[in-house]
Structures are given as structure tokens and as C-alpha cells.
């Protein structure tokens, strides 16, 4: 619904959205009508070549838990200025088809050259009094100088260092951004989906050491072994190592870290983590990917299985959108991982 040519006016988009709600209201059955739900503005910056359908499906899946006004900006590498927009709604029927809930979505296509114009368009489109989250799916966009204006609108910028190329360089860039020397505005929060991918691994490790018998072994850890299915060490491996080293330091352990590239289909996924004590044949604890979506957890002679499926964009964003504030564990791990990767 709604379209424009080379320039777009925020008022026009807002007007189109108001029309959209009127139309949806008329479509509602009887007195049930539609409900509008919103907990944030979610701005998605993507390349035009990015899979539009996949982005749409991810947003649709996120809406029930994180209802938001979604603004999807699709960039094309063109020197000539040009913007276009359309608005539509994502709706679902949670009440046994009694009443539908809808979230609004705005799609903007923009030439790179129009990037300096975008912040002025997006700012009035954000929902008042609610947080603005920017999910940047392309590292190329992030390096375009005017991108900082767009990022400046957001309280939180979500990136994926896995898309930035070599892990060491990616982590350094991320760390610099956090140091407010880069594109992320002062005061904005930063998130890295490479860190988000680690949550289930980290939680399994933490759960192992809730057991007092296992916790007592923690100061004995002398070696950390991290394996992954990739030729080069991915950012997730550095994050995990940095986080483990930090935790172990708090109980007086100073372990060595070994990274190991596993055979198997390259996917940049972690495949195994082991904590070992010097001179002991068995690991104090290990987690290894097993067949299917499971991981095998070994500790204290016990073997258990836990689900550790490949996470989708939806899984990762769902977690990140649940954390609107600071994440001190990530901030600490980012700085330490960057140092580790560059050492």
C-alpha cells in the first residue's frame, strides 16, 4: 500500500499507515476489529540483494513476541539518489479467530547516495516513547560514512561480526565501535550476533558448574580446547575463549587456550569445547556436537544430551530484542576477545 517515486515524505508514509489501519479495521469481523501492538521500532538495514522473503519471514516470526513498527531499508549500490517506500501490515489471529493483531511495516528502498537523506526520513517514522533498534545486516553499509547518522537514531545497533570477514579484524572493528570511534553513536548500545550464538553453549557450561562437585574442579582447569568447523578461527571461538578465561581467572585458574579446526562441513560453528586439568586423562567437562540437533555433555563420568540446534536469524534477534539495556558480559567479552584475536 502506498508508493512514491524518487523522494519520499515521512508525512505521506504516516498518512498511508493511518489509511492502512482504517482498512484493517473495516476488514475486522463485527466488533472484534484489529488490535495494534507495538513495543519498539525495529529498523532493518539490508542490501537489495539480501533475501527479502527471508527477512520478511524473520520479522513475521518476531512480531508476536516483539511487536514493533518495522522499517526495512533495502540499499542498492547506486550513485544516483533515489528513495521509494510502501507500507503494509503483518497480522496474526491469536484469539481463536476472534480478533487479529497487526504490526505495521514500512519498506524503503534507497540508493547508497541517498543514505545522507535517510536519517531525516526514518526519525519521524519511529514510534514515540519506545526504543529504536537498528539491525544492520550488511558490513558494507556499516562502513559507508553517512551510516552513523542512521545509527545515531538507535538505542541499540545489532551487527553480526561473522559477516565482517576475518575474525580478528571484525572483533577489532567491533571493539573500536564500542569505543565510540566508529559508526555507532555515543550512548548507543552494540550487540553482535556472534556472541548471541554462544548463549546456549555458555549456559550449558554454567549449568555444569552449578553442581558443587564440578565447581570444586574449576580451579584445576589448565587447558581450554575449542574446536570449530571452519578453516579460520571464528569470532565465536574467540568470544568463548575470552569468556572462559575471565570466569576461570575469578577462581584462580590461568588456563592455556588451544583452537582447533575440525574436519566436517565448514559452517563457522563451534563443534567442541573441553576444560582439562593438567595431567588428567579425562576432561573436567566437555560439550561436543553430536548427531542431529543435540550436543553431548560429559562431566564427572556422566554423559547427558542437550539440544543445541543451529540458530536462525529469528532465534538470534529474538534474544537480542529481549535485552534492551546494557549487556556487561558482552562488553567485557568483546574487549577481551579482540585482544585475544590480535595477540
Amino acid at each position: 500500500m502506498g508508493a512514491a517515486g524518487g523522494i519520499i515524505a515521512p508525512d505521506r508514509i504516516l498518512h498511508d499507515m493511518a489509511d492502512l489501519w482504517v482498512t484493517l479495521g473495516k476488514q475486522g469481523e463485527g466488533d472484534a476489529g484489529v488490535l495494534r501492538a507495538c513495543s519498539m521500532t525495529l529498523v532493518v538495514a539490508a542490501e537489495e540483494s539480501d533475501d527479502a522473503q527471508a527477512i520478511g519471514e524473520t520479522l513475521a516470526a518476531l512480531m508476536p513476541e516483539h511487536p514493533s513498527r518495522a522499517i526495512v531499508i533495502r540499499f542498492r549500490a547506486e550513485d544516483q539518489r533515489g528513495l521509494a517506500a510502501r507500507v503494509f501490515a503483518q497480522c496474526w489471529m491469536p484469539f481463536g479467530h476472534r480478533q487479529q493483531i497487526c504490526c505495521e511495516q514500512i519498506e524503503i528502498t534507497a540508493a547508497d547516495a541517498s543514505l545522507p537523506d535517510l536519517a531525516a526520513v526514518v526519525l519521524p517514522l519511529t514510534v514515540p516513547d519506545l526504543p529504536v533498534i537498528l539491525w544492520c545486516r550488511s558490513p558494507r553499509l556499516f562502513h559507508l560514512p553517512p551510516f552513523s547518522q542512521l545509527a545515531g537514531i538507535a538505542q541499540k545497533v545489532v551487527l553480526d561480526s561473522a559477516a565482517f570477514g576475518a575474525a580478528a579484524s571484525a572483533l577489532r572493528q567491533m571493539s573500536d565501535m564500542r569505543g565510540m570511534r566508529g559508526a555507532v553513536a555515543a550512548g548507543s548500545l552494540l550487540a553482535d550476533l556472534s556472541w548471541t550464538r554462544l548463549t546456549r553453549w555458555r549456559e550449558l557450561i554454567a549449568q555444569i558448574f552449578e553442581n558443587r562437585a564440578q565447581l570444586a574442579n574449576l580451579p584445576l582447569v589448565s587447558d581450554i580446547l575449542i574446536s570449530y568447523r571452519a578453516a579460520d578461527t571464528p569470532a565465536t571461538a574467540y568470544y568463548l575463549a575470552a569468556w572462559l578465561i575471565d570466569g576461570l581467572a575469578r577462581v584462580g585458574a590461568r588456563p592455556r587456550v588451544q583452537f582447533h579446526s575440525d574436519s566436517g562441513e565448514p559452517s563457522a560453528r563451534l563443534s567442541r569445547v573441553e576444560l582439562r586439568a593438567h595431567g588428567s586423562a579425562d576432561a573436567i567437562a566437555s560439550i561436543a556436537l553430536a548427531a542431529g540437533p543435540c550436543a553431548e555433555v560429559k562431566t564427572g563420568g556422566l554423559v547427558s544430551k542437550a539440544l543445541l540446534p543451529v540458530l536462525t536469524d529469528y532465534d538470534l534477534m529474538r534474544e537480542e530484542l529481549s535485552i534492551p539495556g546494557r549487556d556487561p558480559a558482552f562488553e567485557h567479552a568483546l574487549a577481551a576477545a579482540a585482544k585475544l584475536a590480535l595477540s
Binding site: E203, L215, W243, I323
Partner: peptide, 12 residues
Amino acid sequence: LENPFQDPLRFE
């Protein structure tokens, strides 16, 4: 000892 790996922001 306290478990040093807990992250209440993200973990259950």
C-alpha cells in the same frame, strides 16, 4: 566457590 559463569541477563 561461586560459579563464575552465570549470566542472569541471558540465562535462566
